[in-house]
Amino acid sequence: MNVKNTVLELLEEICQTDVVKENLDIELFEEGLLDSFGTVSLLVGIEEKLGIHVGISEFDREQWSTPNKIISILENWA
């Protein structure tokens, strides 16, 4: 499954806005689109849809701050 599309679909659902698809460099936390509870939903979604398990303790807010950054981390997930 395509990582990019999956992440964008997830983000659209969690953030409840399609802006995440229009601007892949939007700062999700600064713009108030994602909070810690949204983060949890995102990680659950990633595990369900992509089979990648990211422990919440591995989640670093700085490194996961935009749709592009999230996609890049997951595309390079070993």
Binding site: F29, D35, S36, T39, I56, S57, E58, F59, D60, R61
Partner: peptide, 10 residues
Amino acid sequence: LIVNPKQLFE
């Protein structure tokens, strides 16, 4: 800490 789970767990 709550917004940064990594630090929260530490």
